[in-house]
């Protein structure tokens, strides 16, 4: 059998070639890409600018010398590096246990119908978006003055802990939620209690996700400066903290202090310190991504 193709009466009607507004569509796509490109280009320029500007000071003076107002060529950020370590150590000490426990309560224990749990949940969502300077006010009024902890490492640690608590809770809940329900059921069906199930099965399975979220939360705390402005970090500190009740400064605060100096050497120093801070944050993010990739898709 041979079929003959009859030409359609109206060739226009079956024209399948693209028509309409291809130019507009193409332009639209380019505009969208440009939107994305602006952000990424900005990031690239920022990184290039601080690296080039800070390059002359990216040497051991930065981490082995103390800040100095009078001799910028000798100034370093040692006290800020140690201050950051101390403050973040206390932040982790307070925020991790409370964050993990809150998340376990909300995800593993609370019934979906519990009004208390829903209230806590909305509260956490709101806290996540409260401006960081407001946490500074809280730290100033409650920790520094009412509890008389003063402008110390521990005040800063407690304040930043409350600041990152919502981030840790949200990330931990996500990690717990990713553990398949049938692991829990398998454990409970053996006569394990709720806590045994959580402790022996759910949490170990969620640890990679919890670690990732925790690292990201702490890296946020490391970069945070605003609340610490109210908590005494701006004072000139040329010694390393010696304990929880020591005065302190941190890297972001040290950067801020140097931006306020008019001499160009200090701007170079600020750039070098920014590079150092960004390298630390980048390393933390890389670790987080590594953990995530290494443990992805186990079930």
């Amino acid at each position: 059998m041979t079929a003959t193709l009859t030409p359609p009466a109206n060739p226009e009607a079956v024209d399948l070639r693209g028509h309409g507004q291809p130019v507009v569509d193409k332009a639209f796509r380019w505009v969208l890409f440009l939107c994305l490109f602006v952000g990424i280009a900005f990031l690239a320029i920022l990184l290039a600018y601080v690296t080039i500007k800070g390059w002359p000071r990216l040497d051991s003076r930065l981490w082995t010398n103390m800040p100095s107002i009078r001799r910028p060529e000798q100034a370093g950020a040692e006290s800020a590096i140690f201050g950051t370590l101390w403050v973040i150590g206390f932040t982790a000490l307070f925020a991790l246990p409370i964050g993990f426990m809150s998340a376990i309560y909300l995800e593993e224990y609370a019934k979906p119908t519990s009004r208390f749990a829903r209230f806590v949940e909305v509260n956490i969502q709101n806290l996540a978006a409260v401006p960081s300077i407001v946490y500074g006010i809280l730290g100033l009024a409650i920790f520094a003055r009412a509890l008389a902890l003063g402008q110390t490492v521990i005040t800063a640690g407690l304040t930043l802990a409350l600041l990152v608590l919502p981030v840790i809770i949200v990330a931990t809940r996500e990690a717990l939620r990713a553990v398949p329900q049938n692991i829990r059921h398998g454990s409970l069906a053996l006569g394990a209690t709720q806590w045994q199930t959580t402790w022996h099965q759910t949490m170990p399975a969620a640890i990679p996700g919890m670690a990732t979220g925790t690292i990201l939360a702490l890296s946020r705390a490391i970069g945070e400066a605003a609340p610490l402005l109210l908590l005494g970090a701006v004072t000139f500190i040329s010694f390393n903290p010696t304990g929880p009740f020591s005065a302190y400064t941190t890297l972001p605060i040290q950067i801020y202090n140097w931006t306020r100096e008019s001499r160009e050497e200090f701007q170079v120093l600020a750039s070098a310190t920014i590079v150092l801070l960004l390298v630390i944050l980048l390393a933390m993010n890389a670790v987080a991504i590594l953990i995530r990739n290494k443990t992805q898709k186990r079930w």
């Binding site: 398949p180 398998g186 454990s187 069906a189 170990p204 399975a205 186990r298």
Partner: peptide
């Protein structure tokens, strides 16, 4: 259970 739910251990 329906799906073998061994523990990740």
């Amino acid at each position: 259970f329906q799906k073998p739910n061994v523990f990740p251990k």
